[in-house]
Design a protein around this nucleic acid. Structure first.
Ligand SMILES: [Mn+2]
Ligand SMILES: [Mn+2]
Ligand SMILES: [Zn+2]
Ligand SMILES: [Zn+2]
Lengths: 139, 139
DNA sequence: TCACAGTTTAGAATCATTCTAATCCCGTTG
DNA sequence: CAACGGGATTAGAATGATTCTAAACTGTGA
């Protein structure tokens, strides 16, 4: 049957757990982002999607939300294109194929690629993360 | 003992060989870029540098030139920061450390890092290049 | 020296992203 | 349940890197 009165949905719980007030906008965006696994969105694509679903959310809020989710560890930012930022619902260790002509990102599971021989960083610096981007083109 | 009349300098030769007319601006910029090896510049940093050297070159020309040099294979573009584009005088196979807080790129020679296990791209796509960015932070 | 295609450039335009400051609303209190 | 307070949303302006436009300039071959 339907939701009981006390049910708030997984999205709400997830947001609360992340220390974010579950507003109508955040719940809607989280619903779209985390319904299916492993999504890669831009602010604009997510705004188009939520708007297309008949929900009114400003682009500024989409930007705010993407950054807050990232800060909270729910998303991670992927830098592959000089023109726009991508946000990834897969926060685990993994890499990407990137098809620049279509702005498409495809996950490569973390265990798949092995990076060996990374030298020690210069004194005073420590490694934050190692990103691998496999740039592909239409054949 | 100075240059003879027929001497035009290496920069000019390099530009001609790349099919680019050796204008005053291009010769100046090429001089700064290729005097020492392995430089990483942004349009703004290069503009500041050429301006600081007392040479008048517009920012638009710096952008034009960086793209033309890249097109000609004299530079390669490096995408590591959502905020700005870097251009690299090292066009060979190599990877980078990137210190985001200071916008600093450091080369890692191509033979140093080995990337294994890159899966075959999805049908219809072929690999263009594999970029590795080792993101570092101040300790 | 001439002519012209390629170049340069000032300034406007673009575009993603951020900022402002006014309004709104979630969660708590009484 | 109504009031309250601070976080959240948002329209619109602002920012900043980059690109574009159109007019002036210049390298080069004849
Ligand atoms: Mn759109
Ligand atoms: Mn500057
Ligand atoms: Zn991913
Ligand atoms: Zn480099």
């Amino acid at each position: 049957m339907g939701k009981t009165l006390r049910e708030k949905g997984k999205g709400t719980v997830k947001l609360r757990h992340a220390g974010l007030r579950p507003t109508r906008q955040r719940v809607e965006l989280a619903g779209l982002l985390f319904k299916s696994c492993d999504r890669h969105v831009t602010a604009e694509s997510l705004h188009d999607e939520v708007t297309g679903a008949g929900v009114k959310v400003s682009l500024a809020t989409v930007y705010n939300t993407l950054h807050q989710f990232t800060e909270a560890g729910l998303l991670r930012q992927v830098i592959v294109d000089a023109a726009r930022s991508y946000f990834d619902t897969n926060t685990g260790d993994h890499q990407h194929f990137f098809l620049e002509s279509e702005g498409m990102l495809i996950d490569i599971p973390g265990e798949t690629i092995a990076v060996a021989g990374v030298p020690a960083p210069p004194p005073g610096l420590s490694i934050d993360r190692v990103d691998v981007v496999v740039r592909v083109r239409r054949t």
